[in-house]
């Protein structure tokens, strides 16, 4: 468990953040510029869906990151509960609004994409419903954690909720295979390799990188803000 406690030092975290935040932010700007150009201008329209396929470049990375951040938060919550890691809960609290926004973006763009292709803004299929549940899990976590006056208590309760909510993650991932859904099945991580043309895959991957860098820099900034606020509060108490 050495590596876990290595990052538990707030001073070490702040030194790392000072270096990583500009790196991630600049990286996100560059990746968004390249990714959006490739996605909106340089990539071909779909032979079936035409230009609407371009929603994919916004929709799919948001879904990936929304799902991935939840898993990361659950892992951090587990570490926080077991190892009493000083920064684990801070990460969860900082990542929750980012993850919720991404899942919300995924639902909104999915709805916009559903109207022209399926003819409905919303259908009650397994993938859509399970992602909606994921959104409520994020909201529930944020409300639960914020409801406690004592922050340590809120962290524990929220962490337990995050761990319980992990059951929803495989349901989101495999909902398109377990049930007959309107939502299309996975085309990237599937048996027999990716079923997507390279000229569409590359912009998608660049966009995913851009989202990841953006989320990373946002989370680091939010964590640093909380640490600084704590430091200010401590100084005030002293004086």
């Amino acid at each position: 468990m050495g590596w876990v406690s290595f990052f538990a030092n707030p001073a070490r975290f702040l030194r790392l953040a000072r270096f990583l935040i500009p790196l991630f932010s600049l990286g996100a700007i560059v990746a968004f510029a390249v990714g959006l150009y490739l996605a909106l201008c340089a990539s071909p329209p779909d032979y079936q869906q035409g230009e609407t396929v371009r929603i994919m470049y916004v929709h799919v990375p948001a879904a990936w990151l929304g799902l991935g951040l939840y898993v990361a938060m659950a892992v951090a919550a587990g570490i926080g509960l077991v190892a009493r890691h000083a920064l684990a809960d801070l990460f969860c609290a900082a990542a929750a609004p980012v993850g919720a926004t991404l899942v919300g973006l995924c639902l909104a763009t999915g709805s916009l994409w559903g109207k022209p292709t399926w003819g409905a803004w919303w259908v009650w299929d397994a993938r859509l419903t399970s992602v909606l549940v994921l959104f409520f899990l994020y909201c529930g976590y944020m409300v639960l954690r914020g409801a406690f006056e004592d922050e340590a208590q809120g962290a524990k309760a929220g962490g337990i909720l995050l761990l319980i909510g992990v059951v929803n993650i495989p349901i989101v991932k495999f909902s398109v295979e377990w049930w007959n859904t309107l939502h299309q099945p996975a085309s990237l991580l599937r048996k027999g390799g990716a079923a997507i043309a390279p000229e569409m895959l590359h912009p998608l991957l660049v966009m995913a990188l851009a989202y990841a860098l953006y989320a990373g820099s946002m989370i680091l900034i939010r964590m640093r803000t909380v640490l600084r606020a704590r430091k200010i509060a401590l100084r005030r108490e002293e004086s």
Binding site: V133, F136, A147, L161, I164, G165
Partner: peptide
């Protein structure tokens, strides 16, 4: 809060 937490489950 209970309602919000429980309905997904």
């Amino acid at each position: 809060l209970l309602t919000l937490l429980l309905i997904p489950f």
